[in-house]
Protein backbone atom coordinates (compact mmCIF):
# COMPACT_ATOMS: atom_id res chain seq x y z
CA UNK A 1 0.00 0.00 0.00
CA UNK A 2 0.99 3.61 -0.46
CA UNK A 3 -0.08 6.76 1.37
CA UNK A 4 0.46 10.48 1.29
CA UNK A 5 0.99 11.86 4.77
CA UNK A 6 0.32 15.44 5.74
CA UNK A 7 2.21 15.71 9.00
CA UNK A 8 2.37 18.64 11.41
CA UNK A 9 6.00 19.65 11.97
CA UNK A 10 7.00 22.13 14.62
CA UNK A 11 10.56 22.51 15.88
CA UNK A 12 9.62 23.67 19.34
CA UNK A 13 7.03 25.48 21.43
CA UNK A 14 7.92 28.84 19.88
CA UNK A 15 8.06 27.70 16.29
CA UNK A 16 5.01 28.48 14.18
CA UNK A 17 4.87 25.05 12.65
CA UNK A 18 3.62 23.86 9.30
CA UNK A 19 2.47 20.77 7.48
CA UNK A 20 5.04 18.67 5.68
CA UNK A 21 4.12 16.08 3.10
CA UNK A 22 5.72 12.62 3.04
CA UNK A 23 5.11 9.54 0.98
CA UNK A 24 4.76 6.25 2.84
CA UNK A 25 5.61 3.46 0.41
CA UNK A 26 5.60 -0.33 0.70
CA UNK A 27 3.18 -0.24 3.58
CA UNK A 28 1.77 -3.59 4.57
CA UNK A 29 -1.87 -3.69 5.66
CA UNK A 30 -0.67 -5.64 8.71
CA UNK A 31 1.40 -2.71 9.92
CA UNK A 32 0.23 -0.63 12.81
CA UNK A 33 -0.13 3.07 12.17
CA UNK A 34 2.94 3.77 14.30
CA UNK A 35 5.00 1.17 12.43
CA UNK A 36 4.04 2.95 9.23
CA UNK A 37 5.35 6.18 10.79
CA UNK A 38 8.48 4.31 11.95
CA UNK A 39 9.00 3.38 8.32
CA UNK A 40 8.76 6.99 7.20
CA UNK A 41 11.25 8.01 9.89
CA UNK A 42 13.64 5.23 8.93
CA UNK A 43 13.73 6.65 5.43
CA UNK A 44 14.27 10.22 6.73
CA UNK A 45 17.12 9.46 9.15
CA UNK A 46 19.80 8.39 6.61
CA UNK A 47 19.22 11.65 4.73
CA UNK A 48 20.06 13.42 8.02
CA UNK A 49 16.57 14.89 8.18
CA UNK A 50 15.11 14.89 11.65
CA UNK A 51 12.51 12.17 12.02
CA UNK A 52 8.94 13.07 12.88
CA UNK A 53 8.67 13.20 16.66
CA UNK A 54 5.67 11.35 18.07
CA UNK A 55 4.99 9.80 21.42
CA UNK A 56 4.61 6.06 21.97
CA UNK A 57 5.76 3.43 24.41
CA UNK A 58 3.91 0.23 25.23
CA UNK A 59 2.32 -0.12 21.78
CA UNK A 60 -0.46 -2.25 23.16
CA UNK A 61 -2.99 0.39 24.07
CA UNK A 62 -2.48 0.75 27.80
CA UNK A 63 0.29 3.26 28.61
CA UNK A 64 -1.58 6.17 27.05
CA UNK A 65 1.49 7.70 25.43
CA UNK A 66 0.36 7.81 21.83
CA UNK A 67 -1.45 10.96 20.90
CA UNK A 68 -2.19 11.63 17.25
CA UNK A 69 -5.17 13.29 15.65
CA UNK A 70 -5.61 11.34 12.45
CA UNK A 71 -7.88 12.78 9.78
CA UNK A 72 -9.54 14.98 12.37
CA UNK A 73 -10.19 12.31 14.99
CA UNK A 74 -8.01 11.58 18.03
CA UNK A 75 -6.58 8.04 17.71
CA UNK A 76 -7.96 7.80 14.18
CA UNK A 77 -10.88 6.19 12.40
CA UNK A 78 -11.30 2.98 14.42
CA UNK A 79 -13.16 3.00 17.72
CA UNK A 80 -12.22 2.05 21.26
CA UNK A 81 -8.50 1.93 20.53
CA UNK A 82 -5.35 4.00 20.84
CA UNK A 83 -3.25 5.05 17.85
CA UNK A 84 -0.82 2.18 18.40
CA UNK A 85 -3.68 -0.29 17.96
CA UNK A 86 -4.73 1.21 14.64
CA UNK A 87 -3.80 -0.89 11.62
CA UNK A 88 -3.20 0.26 8.08
CA UNK A 89 -5.85 -2.06 6.69
CA UNK A 90 -8.30 0.53 8.04
CA UNK A 91 -7.22 2.92 5.26
CA UNK A 92 -7.71 2.66 1.54
CA UNK A 93 -4.63 2.40 -0.61
CA UNK A 94 -3.38 5.72 -1.97
CA UNK A 95 -5.26 7.80 0.59
CA UNK A 96 -4.01 11.09 2.00
CA UNK A 97 -3.76 11.03 5.79
CA UNK A 98 -3.57 14.19 7.90
CA UNK A 99 -1.75 13.86 11.22
CA UNK A 100 -1.89 16.57 13.87
CA UNK A 101 -0.96 16.79 17.54
CA UNK A 102 -3.42 17.07 20.43
CA UNK A 103 -4.39 20.73 20.47
CA UNK A 104 -5.21 22.55 23.69
CA UNK A 105 -3.80 25.46 25.61
CA UNK A 106 -3.12 23.12 28.51
CA UNK A 107 -1.08 20.84 26.19
CA UNK A 108 1.73 22.99 24.76
CA UNK A 109 3.55 21.40 21.85
CA UNK A 110 7.06 20.19 22.62
CA UNK A 111 7.97 19.11 19.12
CA UNK A 112 6.07 18.00 16.02
CA UNK A 113 3.36 15.69 17.33
CA UNK A 114 4.55 15.54 20.93
CA UNK A 115 2.70 17.61 23.52
CA UNK A 116 3.26 18.29 27.20
CA UNK A 117 0.50 16.61 29.19
CA UNK A 118 1.80 17.34 32.67
CA UNK A 119 -1.37 19.35 33.29
CA UNK A 120 -3.12 16.01 33.84
CA UNK A 121 -0.55 15.00 36.44
CA UNK A 122 -1.01 18.29 38.23
CA UNK A 123 -4.76 17.74 38.35
CA UNK A 124 -4.08 14.33 39.89
CA UNK A 125 -1.65 15.80 42.38
CA UNK A 126 -4.32 18.21 43.53
CA UNK A 127 -6.35 15.39 45.01
CA UNK A 128 -6.60 12.26 42.86
CA UNK A 129 -5.58 9.93 45.66
CA UNK A 130 -6.50 8.48 49.00
CA UNK A 131 -4.03 9.93 51.44
CA UNK A 132 -3.05 6.98 53.57
CA UNK A 133 0.38 5.90 54.72
CA UNK A 134 2.11 2.74 53.66
CA UNK A 135 1.75 0.00 56.24
CA UNK A 136 -0.98 -0.53 58.77
CA UNK A 137 -3.78 -1.02 56.26
CA UNK A 138 -6.55 -3.29 57.48
CA UNK A 139 -7.18 -6.66 55.86
CA UNK A 140 -8.50 -6.31 52.32
CA UNK A 141 -11.64 -8.26 53.15
CA UNK A 142 -12.63 -6.03 56.05
CA UNK A 143 -14.28 -3.65 53.61
CA UNK A 144 -16.99 -5.49 51.77
CA UNK A 145 -17.52 -3.96 48.37
CA UNK A 146 -20.26 -5.32 46.16
CA UNK A 147 -19.33 -6.72 42.80
CA UNK A 148 -21.39 -4.05 41.06
CA UNK A 149 -19.66 -1.32 43.00
CA UNK A 150 -16.23 -2.72 42.22
CA UNK A 151 -17.09 -3.09 38.53
CA UNK A 152 -18.38 0.45 38.40
CA UNK A 153 -15.18 1.74 39.98
CA UNK A 154 -13.16 -0.32 37.52
CA UNK A 155 -15.11 1.10 34.58
CA UNK A 156 -13.97 4.54 35.63
CA UNK A 157 -10.49 3.51 36.72
CA UNK A 158 -9.59 2.06 33.34
CA UNK A 159 -8.79 5.56 32.04
CA UNK A 160 -5.28 5.58 30.57
CA UNK A 161 -4.81 9.34 30.76
CA UNK A 162 -3.99 9.74 27.07
CA UNK A 163 -5.90 13.01 26.74
CA UNK A 164 -7.91 12.06 23.65
CA UNK A 165 -11.05 13.33 25.38
CA UNK A 166 -9.47 16.76 25.64
CA UNK A 167 -8.16 16.66 22.10
CA UNK A 168 -11.62 15.78 20.80
CA UNK A 169 -13.60 18.25 22.86
CA UNK A 170 -14.62 21.41 21.10
CA UNK A 171 -13.77 23.26 24.30
CA UNK A 172 -10.62 21.25 25.14
CA UNK A 173 -12.32 20.27 28.38
CA UNK A 174 -10.80 17.70 30.71
CA UNK A 175 -14.10 16.75 32.30
CA UNK A 176 -14.12 13.11 31.21
CA UNK A 177 -10.62 12.61 32.60
CA UNK A 178 -11.44 14.24 35.92
CA UNK A 179 -14.79 12.46 35.99
CA UNK A 180 -13.11 9.08 35.59
CA UNK A 181 -10.72 9.78 38.45
CA UNK A 182 -13.29 11.24 40.80
CA UNK A 183 -15.91 8.56 40.02
CA UNK A 184 -13.41 5.75 40.57
CA UNK A 185 -12.62 6.86 44.13
CA UNK A 186 -16.14 8.08 44.90
CA UNK A 187 -17.49 4.65 44.02
CA UNK A 188 -15.45 2.99 46.77
CA UNK A 189 -15.82 3.31 50.54
CA UNK A 190 -12.06 3.92 50.87
CA UNK A 191 -12.49 7.15 48.93
CA UNK A 192 -15.26 8.43 51.12
CA UNK A 193 -13.43 10.47 53.79
CA UNK A 194 -11.85 12.79 51.23
CA UNK A 195 -14.71 12.78 48.78
CA UNK A 196 -15.66 16.46 49.01
CA UNK A 197 -12.11 17.77 49.33
CA UNK A 198 -10.95 15.70 46.36
CA UNK A 199 -13.55 16.84 43.87
CA UNK A 200 -13.20 20.49 44.85
CA UNK A 201 -9.42 20.41 44.59
CA UNK A 202 -9.33 18.54 41.28
CA UNK A 203 -11.94 20.78 39.67
CA UNK A 204 -10.08 23.84 40.80
CA UNK A 205 -6.84 22.44 39.41
CA UNK A 206 -8.56 21.61 36.14
CA UNK A 207 -9.71 25.21 35.73
CA UNK A 208 -6.30 26.52 36.73
CA UNK A 209 -4.64 24.50 33.96
CA UNK A 210 -6.72 26.29 31.34
CA UNK A 211 -8.94 23.47 30.16
CA UNK A 212 -12.31 24.51 28.77
CA UNK A 213 -15.68 23.54 30.17
CA UNK A 214 -17.94 20.65 29.27
CA UNK A 215 -20.50 21.34 26.55
CA UNK A 216 -22.27 17.98 26.96
CA UNK A 217 -21.42 17.03 23.39
CA UNK A 218 -19.96 13.65 24.33
CA UNK A 219 -17.30 13.76 21.66
CA UNK A 220 -14.94 12.63 24.44
CA UNK A 221 -16.76 9.37 24.94
CA UNK A 222 -16.84 8.75 21.19
CA UNK A 223 -13.03 8.83 20.93
CA UNK A 224 -12.09 7.35 24.29
CA UNK A 225 -9.89 4.28 23.71
CA UNK A 226 -11.29 2.72 26.87
CA UNK A 227 -14.93 3.66 26.13
CA UNK A 228 -15.30 5.55 29.38
CA UNK A 229 -18.90 6.65 29.67
CA UNK A 230 -20.02 10.26 29.98
CA UNK A 231 -22.32 9.15 32.74
CA UNK A 232 -19.25 9.62 34.94
CA UNK A 233 -19.41 13.33 34.07
CA UNK A 234 -22.87 13.38 35.63
CA UNK A 235 -21.39 11.59 38.63
CA UNK A 236 -18.67 14.21 38.79
CA UNK A 237 -21.22 17.00 38.67
CA UNK A 238 -23.20 15.32 41.43
CA UNK A 239 -20.07 14.97 43.52
CA UNK A 240 -19.30 18.60 42.89
CA UNK A 241 -22.76 19.81 43.83
CA UNK A 242 -22.68 17.64 46.90
CA UNK A 243 -19.25 18.92 47.85
CA UNK A 244 -20.43 22.50 47.43
CA UNK A 245 -23.24 21.85 49.88
CA UNK A 246 -21.18 19.78 52.29
CA UNK A 247 -18.30 22.24 52.30
CA UNK A 248 -20.53 25.18 52.97
CA UNK A 249 -22.00 23.38 55.97
CA UNK A 250 -18.69 22.47 57.57
CA UNK A 251 -16.20 24.64 59.33
CA UNK A 252 -13.23 25.16 57.08
CA UNK A 253 -11.18 27.21 59.56
CA UNK A 254 -9.60 25.09 62.25
CA UNK A 255 -10.46 26.37 65.70
CA UNK A 256 -7.83 27.48 68.14
CA UNK A 257 -7.55 24.16 69.95
CA UNK A 258 -6.60 22.46 66.70
CA UNK A 259 -4.03 25.05 65.96
CA UNK A 260 -2.38 24.56 69.30
CA UNK A 261 -2.09 20.87 68.81
CA UNK A 262 -0.58 21.39 65.36
Amino acid sequence: MKFTLKVWRQRGPDDKGRFAVYEARDVSPDMSFLEMLDGVNQSLIPTDEEPVAFEHDCREGICGSCSLVINGVPHGPDRGITTCQLYMRQFSDGATITIEPWRARAFPIIKDLVVDRRALDRVMQAGGYISINTGGAVDGNVLLISKEQAENAMDAASCIGCGACIAACKNASAMLFVAAKVSHLAALPQGNPERARRVMAMMEAMDREGFGSCGNQYECEAVCPKNISVRFIATLQREYLRAGIVESGLRTEPDSADQESA
Binding site: Y129, I130, I132, T134, G135, A137, V138, D139, G140, N141, L143, L144, I145, S146, K147, Q149, A150, A153, M154, A157, H184, L185, A187, L188, Q190, G191
Partner: peptide
Protein backbone atom coordinates in the same frame (compact mmCIF):
# COMPACT_ATOMS: atom_id res chain seq x y z
CA UNK B 1 -0.40 -10.36 52.09
CA UNK B 2 0.35 -6.78 53.17
CA UNK B 3 0.53 -5.69 49.55
CA UNK B 4 -3.08 -6.59 48.90
CA UNK B 5 -4.26 -4.72 52.01
CA UNK B 6 -2.22 -1.67 51.07
CA UNK B 7 -3.56 -1.66 47.51
CA UNK B 8 -7.16 -2.03 48.64
CA UNK B 9 -6.67 0.90 51.02
CA UNK B 10 -5.32 2.97 48.12
CA UNK B 11 -8.51 2.32 46.16
CA UNK B 12 -7.34 -0.35 43.70
CA UNK B 13 -10.62 -1.81 42.36
CA UNK B 14 -9.80 -5.50 42.66
CA UNK B 15 -12.39 -7.93 41.36
CA UNK B 16 -14.94 -8.87 44.02
CA UNK B 17 -17.38 -11.66 44.65
CA UNK B 18 -21.08 -10.91 44.96
CA UNK B 19 -20.76 -11.05 48.72
CA UNK B 20 -18.25 -8.23 48.58
CA UNK B 21 -15.08 -10.21 49.29
CA UNK B 22 -11.99 -10.14 47.12
Amino acid sequence: TQIIDQCVALGVPFAREYGGQL
